[in-house]
Amino acid sequence: MSQQDSVDALIRDQGVLFSEGMGATIARNTPQELFHWLCGSVLLAARISSDLAVQAAQGLRSKGLHTVDALVAADEATIMRCLGENGYKRYDGVGTDYLKATARLVQDHYNSDLRNMLDDDPDAVLGRLKEAKGLGDTGAGIFAREAQLVWDVFYPRLDGPAIRAAETLSLTTDHGALVSMAGSRERFVRLAAALTRADLGAPSEAVRQTVV
């Protein structure tokens, strides 16, 4: 088996984007979809399983609490109840505070559109993302990992978990080589998600069988 086989198996078996699991369609590159992914990144950055964070972000969307205006207008009890009912009970209070503060930040500083924080400096954009309460380096990296699908400033990007998984699976960590093996920008982003899933949990059996 080759590294190409591993890349193909990762994308095929574990390449669902975390944002997709939440119901956010980043490929649209719209304020609403990007903000929903930012909320998801805030939830994923907490010390809780990724599955529960995804479930909580799904819950926000199902209640219409995934937009800037909706979160700013919602009372804290409503948000807290939504998070608690969707697996985020341990952090529902903190999560509510973070989400409300993040919504106000995006509304006040970026006219409710995250695209207004963009420029050509990835570190500067990451710094602006970290202004969101509770996001920090980890959360900003989570957001960037899938936002690179539409934000050129971050492409191509692999963060810590994906790099660890690549090393474990005897894959190169050279971004150019992985972009080439992935074959497209979307597939590279799915590869980054797949490697992250492999690090957080475990590689699928099909992926393990390809390891050189």
Rank of each mutant, 00 (worst) to 15 (best):
K100N: 06
S112R: 12
Y98L: 14
A147Q: 15
A140Q: 07
A73Y: 01
K100G: 04
M117A: 08
D97S: 00
A73S: 13
R145E: 00
N116F: 00
Y88V: 05
V94A: 04
K100Y: 01
G136F: 02
D113R: 13
D121L: 08
V68P: 07
V153Q: 13
P122M: 07
G95P: 03
A70F: 05
D108P: 03
D137L: 12
D92N: 14
A103P: 07
G139W: 02
V153R: 11
G141H: 12
N86S: 05
G93Q: 13
K130S: 13
L99W: 05
G136P: 08
R90F: 03
R128P: 14
T67I: 09
Y88Q: 10
A77I: 00
H109F: 03
V106E: 04
A144Q: 10
Y91R: 11
D137V: 14
G95E: 10
A140P: 13
D92F: 00
L118Y: 06
L83P: 02
D137T: 09
K133D: 01
E76T: 03
D119P: 06
G134M: 03
D121V: 13
L126D: 03
Q107I: 01
T78K: 08
G84I: 04
G141Q: 12
P122H: 12
H66K: 08
A132Q: 04
V94R: 00
Q107V: 02
D119H: 04
L114Q: 12
R81Q: 06
D92Y: 03
S112C: 14
G134W: 02
R145I: 07
R115M: 14
G87R: 11
L83Y: 06
G139I: 02
E76H: 04
L118I: 10
G136T: 09
D121P: 15
I142E: 06
S112T: 13
G141M: 12
E76M: 02
N116T: 14
I142S: 05
R104D: 01
T67G: 06
Y110N: 08
I142P: 04
M80Y: 07
M80V: 00
L114Y: 09
R104T: 12
K133T: 03
G141V: 03
D69S: 15
T138K: 13
H66I: 03
T102Y: 04
E131L: 15
H66T: 11
Q148D: 04
K130H: 06
R115S: 09
C82G: 02
D113M: 15
A144I: 10
A103E: 09
W151L: 13
V150I: 11
D123N: 12
G93H: 06
A132S: 14
I142N: 06
D75W: 01
P122T: 12
P122I: 03
R104N: 13
I79D: 08
K130C: 10
G87I: 11
N116Q: 15
A147F: 15
A132D: 01
V72C: 14
H109Q: 10
Y91L: 09
D121M: 07
E146K: 12
A144P: 10
L129H: 07
T96E: 14
K133I: 01
D152A: 08
A132K: 02
T102E: 03
I79W: 02
N86D: 09
